[in-house]
Design a protein around this nucleic acid. Structure first.
Ligand code: MN
Ligand code: MN
Ligand code: ZN
Ligand code: ZN
Lengths: 142, 142
DNA sequence: GACCTAGATGAGAACGATTCTTAAATAAGA
DNA sequence: TCTTATTTAAGAATCGTTCTCATCTAGGTC
């Protein structure tokens, strides 16, 4: 009767087969405080799963995305990041080091679809705020 | 005394050397109605510059970005796109076909920087609205 | 518990976008 | 015209991701 989420239960409820690799990947994301890349996941699980293929990590995060257990975040260059926080939220991105911070909009954005896109069906939106994180500001050459 | 912008003048004012390739690339972006990829530029200029290298296109758009003549837009997967519209604006992205539409926010977003990111220096932000464009909606299997 | 099979895994090849390297060419100032 | 710092072209290299396919296994059935 544990309070925290259990990777196995989440997988079962999502209708995904429970494999040791999937359980470990999902558990890693549940425990990880941040926005992990495929490589973060892969290298972190090397000890426990020395033979796990990077393909398996890709396959798994794709499936987890499809069933809504994680959300993929692509911030321009570099690797995709995977967010266990699936509530609608947005990100501050450091243009120096790539660090990502969550933030929530105080009120939803108000936009009007332009005439050329009349009839565009909005699914969701993501605000990417770029700037310099506190850490990088300190290390500035000034 | 032409009213439209002249690629050569823009390059000079930006302090960039004027080469035929740069002029052609910038002019292409000025004329192009949309958000071109490196490949769009490259293939469109093949006739006039059969020997131009794709590296030259990459080099050029990078420099144009650095001096603020174009803006790079990365929408997750696939190739970066280059926008001659450098006014602050945002995009609707079709999740089916990748089409991009400009839009402008009626009022700037209101956000509060979370405590973990205290001191984050905001440079700019970009809203990416995902959904289905009118064209793709019509072609839907329903 | 043994059996079956759709689905998952692992290894590496393949791919597409981008960056890097280097020799040759050239823009632009003197 | 001369000079030199920049730019270009070509291809190799890199990086993230997808694909292929032989092998393995989770989980349902008897
Ligand atoms: Mn997040
Ligand atoms: Mn635009
Ligand atoms: Zn930073
Ligand atoms: Zn579309």
């Amino acid at each position: 009767m544990q309070a925290q989420k259990d990777a196995v239960q989440l997988l079962k409820h999502a209708g995904l087969r429970v494999t040791p690799q999937r359980e470990a990947i999902l558990q890693f994301l549940l425990d990880y405080d941040g926005h992990a890349t495929v490589d973060d996941i892969y290298t972190s699980l090397q000890d426990r799963f020395p033979s796990m293929s990077v393909s398996t990590v890709y396959n798994t995060v794709k499936q987890l995305s499809q069933v809504g257990l994680v959300k993929e975040i692509g911030v321009g260059d570099g690797a995709s990041r995977f967010d266990i926080n699936v509530e609608p939220h947005h990100h501050l991105v450091c243009t120096r080091c790539g660090a990502l911070f969550d933030f929530y909009l105080e009120e939803p954005i108000h936009l009007s679809v332009p005439p050329e896109a009349e009839g565009f069906e909005i699914e969701d939106y993501h605000v990417e705020v770029r700037g310099v994180c506190p850490r990088c500001k300190k290390q500035q050459v000034s």
